[in-house]
């Protein structure tokens, strides 16, 4: 008896990515550079988040031609983004055989009330979160992996730091609660009670939690690992830097050896300038991607 699409199979896939870097790419050439540099997976997109931000308008699922091109170019897993709540984009990506779908706030949401029922799919999903409430709701819907939202396309790590500290702080708070306090905590967070109980019993989230949204340098990646991220997504940070190949390699090494400062210094030397960053306060409230998702 063979079972596909079980929790163990879907969550297990994300477990295998731990300690690794997942890189945004927009074509086969970039995908090969990422694979060569040691990425554990690539995210196939039409535009990286900073270009989505610059272009404005509605951001949608990538053209399937790009996704297919990337899938044919590399042997590492390929992820792709669907709009929040867009059942058809998600099903199309699943039918194409992408290895993971990011139900992502980087794209313009298709539904401003509901997320996808991710338990219904054979393909696993990753979703963004800013706090334990969002994390637990997404787990309740069946996500197999989490990532911080950060503030995508800014090259500014401050929001990702806020989000990982918030989630991990709340997990610690939950673990130390007495059981009779959990229901009210669930009510305050808007989180499913059963998911919180499971987290409390195991002492940790049931799925891996990567850092995303603002990682621009090897030191940023190492910082997020020290704060308890299981791995790192780099969106605009690689292919918007001066020397993507060198940047990609350096970020991979800094993620593996996140507490070896001499090594991080060494890999950070002579790799050119990081992407130009954005101060969060200069972004209009309606342009903040992290506020998308419910």
């Amino acid at each position: 008896m063979t079972n596909q699409g079980t929790d163990r199979v879907k969550r297990g896939m994300a477990e295998m990515q731990k300690g690794g870097v997942i890189m945004d790419v927009v074509n086969a050439e970039q995908a090969k550079i990422a694979e060569e540099a040691g990425a554990v997976a690539v995210m196939a997109l039409e535009r990286v988040p900073s270009d989505i931000r610059a272009a404005g308008g509605v951001a949608r699922m990538a053209d399937p031609t790009i996704v297919e091109e990337v899938m044919n170019a590399v042997s590492i897993p390929v992820m792709a983004k669907a709009r929040i709540g867009h059942v058809v984009e998600a099903r199309v990506l699943e039918s194409m055989g992408v290895d993971y779908i990011d139900e992502s706030e980087v794209l313009t949401p298709a539904d401003e009330v509901y997320h996808l029922d991710k338990k219904e799919y054979t393909v696993p999903f990753v979703c963004g979160c800013r706090h334990l409430g969002e994390a637990a709701r997404r787990i309740g819907e069946g996500t197999s992996m989490l990532r911080t939202k950060g503030e995508p396309g800014t090259g500014n790590i401050v929001e990702a730091v806020r989000h990982i500290r918030e989630v991990n702080g709340q997990v610690r708070q939950l673990v130390h609660m007495s059981k009779d306090e959990v229901m009210t905590f669930a009510k305050e967070l808007g989180a499913p009670y059963e998911v919180l109980l499971e987290i409390k019993e195991n002492g940790r989230l049931p799925v891996v939690n990567f850092a995303a949204g603002g990682v621009a340098t090897p030191a940023d990646a190492a910082l997020m690992m020290q704060l308890g991220a299981d791995g790192v997504f780099v969106g605009s940070g690689i292919f918007k830097s001066d020397d993507p190949e060198k940047f990609a390699r350096a970020i991979v090494e800094a993620t593996t050896h996140y507490d070896d400062y001499e090594l991080i210094a060494k890999v950070s030397k002579g790799i050119g300038t990081a992407m130009k960053g954005l101060e969060i306060s200069t972004i209009a409230k309606e342009d903040r991607m992290q506020d998308r998702g419910w």
Binding site: N3, Q4, G5, V9, S75, G97, D99, Y100, V123, P124
Partner: peptide, 15 residues
Amino acid sequence: KRNAFGRQRESFEAP
């Protein structure tokens, strides 16, 4: 053979 059973959607568990 790498990825011999297919991509993620073909991943499975079995006794």
